[in-house]
Deep mutational scan, measured.
Amino acid sequence: ENVVSAPMPGKVLRVLVRVGDRVRVGQGLLVLEAMKMENEIPSPRDGVVKRILVKEGEIVDTGQPLIELG
C-alpha cells in the first residue's frame, strides 16, 4: 500500500512529515480534523515519504489520497 488515503472527510490541520522522511508503521503522518476532533493519521507501513498530496488547511473527502510512500 503506497498511498495513504483519508479515512473520513475533514480538514488537514498539520502535516507531520516531509518528503524524504523515513517513517515507521503507526507513526503519525498528518492530523485531520473531523467533527471538531483531531485525528492523527498513521503510516500503514515502514517506508519513505515520496510525495505529500495535500496542504495544511485543505478540505479532503473520504478516500482522497494524502501521502505517497516509497
Results as ranks from 00 to 15, higher is better:
R18P: 13
D46C: 14
E56N: 13
K36E: 08
G20Q: 03
R51T: 08
N2W: 06
V54D: 15
T62G: 01
L69T: 10
G20K: 12
G47D: 05
K36L: 08
G26Q: 13
E38R: 04
L53Q: 02
K55T: 11
E58W: 00
V31R: 00
N39Y: 08
S5D: 12
N2I: 12
V17F: 06
N39W: 01
K55F: 11
V60N: 09
E38P: 08
M8S: 03
N2R: 15
P9E: 08
Q64F: 04
E40D: 01
I67R: 15
V15L: 04
E40M: 12
G28R: 11
K36A: 07
K11G: 06
P65W: 08
D61K: 11
S43Y: 11
E1N: 15
A6L: 03
R14P: 10
A6R: 09
L13V: 03
E56T: 02
V19T: 10
M8H: 06
V48Q: 09
L16E: 13
A34P: 06
V54G: 10
E40S: 07
K50V: 11
R51A: 03
E38T: 05
K55C: 14
E68N: 15
Q64M: 12
L29R: 15
V4K: 10
V49Y: 12
A6G: 08
Q27A: 11
V31P: 15
G26M: 09
N2H: 03
V48F: 10
L16S: 09
V23I: 07
V4C: 14
L16R: 01
G63C: 14
P7F: 05
G28V: 00
E33L: 08
E33V: 10
V31Q: 12
A34G: 10
P42V: 06
V15Y: 11
K50D: 06
V23A: 08
L66I: 10
V3I: 07
V60I: 04
A34Q: 09
D46K: 03
E58L: 02
I59N: 08
N2D: 11
D46E: 10
G57C: 14
P44C: 14
V17E: 10
T62C: 14
L53T: 08
N39Q: 02
L32G: 05
E33R: 05
G10S: 11
I41Q: 03
P42T: 03
K50Y: 04
V25W: 02
V49L: 00
K11Q: 08
L32F: 05
I59R: 13
P9R: 07
P44Q: 06
I67F: 07
R51Y: 01
L30F: 13
E1T: 14
D61G: 00
